[in-house]
């Protein structure tokens, strides 16, 4: 008897699970059917969501690409060592060789003051003016590249050490541009994050409003279903699925838009890379990125629908 009761309740549980599953399938199919029934208005919703998601995602992809370029520079820091005016060319060359033997220095390049003057006159066209000077105003220069694995502060220490030497007039660490670039990137990432956050919020609200309209359109049906015993979850389900479909479609559209704009940029970027003798190629979203975008869209759709449903469905009661 006891066993019979237990197995009966188990079948009942399985029945309930099956009917729950059945209604999920039914709601999913029915709401997908409703979404596809009005292809133009659904397409508009998908496009709005797609564009709103594609904007931050596309910018982020662009930034990721920019970051791969900036980290591919192998020697981020260089120290320009300007020597005192009275240092002879020979001493300067000796110093260049001596510095090159140090462990913390990867490379040194000597630019003599005569080379610098010649270069300056050809570049500027002031050759007459320069020829009239009775002495060369330019100093000898040694470009010192610290080892790339050294941290930023070892380069700074090296710079201080070089600065202290008597032959050296000034040692300049060319690192500021890199710091500037990095903080610019950080700033851009935050701007994208903020804009992305706003747009994501917009997407949720747009979807919430779309679902609210769907609820309004089916008000009579909701009343009838509640009158003949449909639970809140039963009434809620098709609308949550509607939100899901709008979100998934929007995510798909945004993945497509990002892919399209990267394809549009690919050729000029490759040409540019070729001109800079770089083997840089643009990196897209990839299949996983696209799928993530679709999943994200789906989640946003669900949350928009949940928002609308929680606000509007309970107010519809049989009167």
């Amino acid at each position: 008897m006891g066993r019979g009761g237990a197995s009966q309740s188990r079948t009942r549980l399985r029945d309930r699970y099956n009917s729950w599953l059945r209604h999920h399938r039914l709601s999913a199919a029915d709401s997908l059917h409703r979404v596809l029934e009005h292809p133009w208005s659904s397409m508009l919703t998908w496009m709005v969501i797609g564009i709103a998601l594609a904007l931050p995602v596309g910018l982020n992809v662009a930034l990721d690409n920019a970051q791969t370029i900036s980290t591919s520079w192998d020697s981020p820091a260089q120290i320009s060592v300007f020597l005192e005016a009275d240092v002879t060319s020979l001493t300067a060359r000796k110093l260049t060789l001596e510095l090159a033997t140090r462990d913390d220095i990867a490379k040194t390049v000597f630019h003599s003051r005569e080379d610098a003057l010649a270069e300056f006159s050809t570049l500027t066209g002031f050759s007459d003016v320069l020829a009239s000077l009775d002495q060369n105003p330019l100093p000898h220069l040694i470009i010192v590249s610290p080892h790339a694995d050294g941290a930023q502060n070892t380069a700074a220490l090296l710079q201080e050490e070089l600065q202290a030497r008597p032959e050296v007039a000034q040692a300049v660490l060319d690192m500021e541009w890199l710091a500037r670039l990095n903080s610019l990137m950080e700033l851009s990432r935050r701007i994208i994050l903020a804009v992305g956050g706003l747009l994501v919020m917009g997407v949720v609200l747009i979807l919430g409003n779309t679902i609210r309209l769907a609820i309004e359109n089916r008000r009579d049906e909701i009343v009838i279903v509640k009158l003949i015993g449909g639970s809140d979850a039963f009434v809620r389900r098709p609308f949550l699925y509607t939100g899901l479909w709008f979100g998934v479609g929007g995510g798909g559209i945004s993945a497509f838009l990002v892919g399209l704009s990267l394809w549009f940029l690919e050729r000029p970027v490759n040409n540019l890379a070729l001109l800079y003798q770089s083997d840089f190629t643009i990196h897209g979203l990839g299949i996983m990125g696209g799928l993530n975008l679709i999943v994200l869209g789906g989640l946003l759709g669900l949350s928009g629908a949940a928002l609308a449903v929680s606000r509007h469905l309970s107010s519809i009661q049989p009167r």
């Binding site: 029945d15 309930r16 099956n18 009917s19 729950w20 059945r22 209604h23 039914l26 015993g229």
Partner: peptide
């Protein structure tokens, strides 16, 4: 069919 769907009968 609506009341039966609500009660979860199979098709």
């Amino acid at each position: 069919a609506l009341p039966l769907i609500i009660c979860g009968y199979d098709h």
